[in-house]
Design a protein around this nucleic acid. Structure first.
Lengths: 230, 230
DNA sequence: ATATCTTTGCGTCAAATTAACGCAATAAAG
DNA sequence: CTTTATTGCGTTAATTTGACGCAAAGATAT
């Protein structure tokens, strides 16, 4: 018989944080899911997440649960919506604050044996536990909006990347195709890319220029107010 | 001695919903505040809001509390951020889901005797209870972002309005000035305004054209994906 | 009354931006 | 060895933006 030692005058819901983690493999956007080991929804796939402790914020909770369940240590998650439908969890009243983060695929040893975390391409997502399908839909919309205003995409790429890698990423997220030459010009004109390494003199046309994200230039731009548009 | 009948195995936070209600008096943006009648922060101004009941969503809670505290019945509120700092309420651990809504000023009998709700212009906001200063800052930012993508501004105007009333609203929210003629052209080109009434033949130049928001046209536009820009 | 200021509708025009596409070099694939 | 794909660097026309002109006539001040 379990003890219930925390008592209140009025009913309180439980609060959880969930994490929608996006990655990019060079071709498609992927999300990180874990397979539930316990009821409810045992064996179903779900987002990493769990109950908030009484002495942590929802963001701290999201990062803690993410690391516990997937081994992934991320510096920042961003909350995007709080789901509070009355019956979203069969155990008790639970509201969840959903977060998202963008990570480089290498950072997760996905498909580990210890952790049952696994990357899924957007078109291969299995049926999810709880209301996580809805959470995913909203997360994807938020990602699409966000990428047009902040250069968060760089968090998904290796530190050094080519222009076509960047274009592939934008095309994958926004589900659009862009003219290669116009994309190239637009990105360069923004001024937030720096050439990453000296180009060898013998470099041929087919050897692409390598870039890195210039956070300093971006900060200046942001100060003035600007917009990344597509 | 009060009874505490709701017991849990782990500590649970209380959950509240707060409402940042925006209005527009033709010149300035205003927000609706209530004066607290009880501790903590007794007599301080705060956003309408209160504890979520166990059988309602956070949005339902926001609307219910708003009506209870200000008499304002609004059809929709939109949540924009969940505040979860550990010590944001001295009584117990409370996380709050903050919402915003835009209403026409007439709809609130502000400054009533019964209700201590009152409209404040943005530059006359008193010091607020809890972390409500921070909530307001974030709400204002969200409003600015939002007005550029969705024509939510119409919710703040009377059903029938003139172009310069609309421009005043945008200028008040975005804290910018626009060229009257360019604003006029841009708005008309969007195609989401309809002329509200036949213009009398004897109408002079100084009699402005009256418009109303064309929700149908807007829905069509939104389908295709578009952007309201300033 | 008379002069001045303000508001409104409607336009103009140059500058900037966008969108579509050409071309040559050359690595990679068949 | 031929074909295909990728990359850097353009060009050009269409569109959009931003700054501003102008006249009619109500509002305001003298």
């Amino acid at each position: 018989m379990e003890e219930k030692n925390y008592c209140y005058k009025y009913p309180h819901p439980a609060v959880t944080s969930d994490c929608v983690i996006f990655g990019f493999d060079g071709v498609a956007i992927k999300v990180l899911l874990i397979q539930r080991g316990i009821e409810p929804y045992k064996d179903k796939w779900a987002f990493p997440g769990g109950f908030m402790q009484i002495d942590e914020t929802v963001e701290e909770c999201a990062k803690r649960e993410l690391e516990e369940e997937t081994g992934l240590k991320t510096t920042s998650v961003e909350q995007f919506y709080t789901f509070s439908d009355v019956n979203r969890d069969p155990r008790e009243r639970v509201i969840t604050v959903a977060h998202y983060a963008l990570v480089r695929l290498e950072e997760v040893k996905g498909g580990d044996d210890a952790m049952s975390a696994q990357w899924f391409a957007m078109n291969e997502i299995p049926s999810l536990a709880f209301d996580h399908d809805r959470i995913l839909r909203i997360a994807v919309n938020r990602l699409k909006e966000r990428i047009c205003f902040e250069p968060i995409g760089f968090e998904l790429l290796p530190e050094i990347f080519t222009m076509s890698a960047l274009q592939n990423l934008y095309e994958a997220i926004l589900e659009m195709k862009f003219d290669r030459r116009n994309f190239y010009n637009k990105m360069l004109k923004l001024g937030i890319l720096s050439e990453a390494e000296e180009r060898p003199k013998n470099a041929s046309r087919r050897t692409p220029i390598k870039y890195r994200f210039n956070a300093k230039k971006y900060a200046e731009l942001k100060q003035k107010g600007f917009r990344l548009e597509f």
